[in-house]
Design a binder for these strands. Sequence first.
DNA 1: CTATACTTTCAGTAGATACTGAAACAGGAG
DNA 2: CTCCTGTTTCAGTATCTACTGAAAGTATAG
Lengths: 193, 193
Amino acid sequence: MVATATAPPAKEIIPQQQLRTSQDLFIRRWGEMGATWGINRTMAEIHALLYITAQPLCTDDVMERLHISRGNASMSLRSLCDWGIIRRLHKRGERREFFESLSDVWEIFSIIATERKRREMDPVLETIKQCQTMLDASSIGKTAAAQESVKLTRQRLGDMEEFMAVTNKVFQQFVGNAKSGLSRVVRVLLKAL
Amino acid sequence: MVATATAPPAKEIIPQQQLRTSQDLFIRRWGEMGATWGINRTMAEIHALLYITAQPLCTDDVMERLHISRGNASMSLRSLCDWGIIRRLHKRGERREFFESLSDVWEIFSIIATERKRREMDPVLETIKQCQTMLDASSIGKTAAAQESVKLTRQRLGDMEEFMAVTNKVFQQFVGNAKSGLSRVVRVLLKAL
DNA sequence: CTATACTTTCAGTAGATACTGAAACAGGAG
DNA sequence: CTCCTGTTTCAGTATCTACTGAAAGTATAG
């Protein structure tokens, strides 16, 4: 019993460990990256796990693999579903729910980017316009509008607005066209340059 | 004295308040955005302040305007200088140091994006390659490499690698060429599409 | 209906991050 | 040199974010 458990299965067990190690490495790095990009580490790790294993996992699998609590797993999984980058999955004759990641990297990226743009860029652009309105000659009078400090601020607001508007436009092309695979934009770019 | 201080200067004072309010609004929103993108709120606000006023300010100006401590102001300003998006500035006959923001939005963006790519994307790409190496047939043997779970993981690693490689390439074109103004890429894009 | 299997919620807490304020430091002026 | 003006550092603290674990909730089976 001891003998058979040590030597012979080595060829099977060691590769499994290797797979596990490789996946863990990816998961860890992905989590670290997420943390510096404003997504919390655990959520990024869960997504990485589902992505890299490419198989449906249940809550307990996730808890065990990442050493997190049930509550944390539950809420993070829900949150990832809300984002739309993982999906719930019912298995025949199983009461548990399973989860799987979207498989298309480009689609994952598009979803995240679009949502973040909507939540974080759009309000800024809105605010910039509001700031400009406050400094219109019609709001503060002709004399005041001619003041150097006002002119400088108006200039800066205008520059920023233009930059963001162009960025948005490029962005739309970048992710808007692509449901899968490389977008038209990328193809255009890689050829044109 | 009281009379002259109330009514007549209104035309001068109110516009100044308006300017201040407009700037504050911008600063606040910019700070909020920074926070969700992994840059701390205060640093983002300081940069916003220097950008929007378009004039050199000293440490005390910043402290007063944003209600932060000297220590915080000092460290955040240093950090922004390290990033290269603001500059120290010595004024003739002044002992204090002043700070000003780069004026070109495109340049600011390029600096930030390049640095973040270097710090956060590149290591991930590196890790992915490492993960792949661990799963090569030469590492884990032919039989193990043929296992379904290993093949799935290898596939996912490959997809992700390709995506990141393409993204990097596009990114290089996007910011690499531009020292100022709209980059060639943007122009190409806006025309081509 | 109750029992069972699983999921969600949330108050409390642990841990991380940002900030303050005072002390140490730097360097030019007298 | 000392004094003065301004800057940096950092230990301690406040604040915020993420996480746990247990209790409540939900749904299916029997």
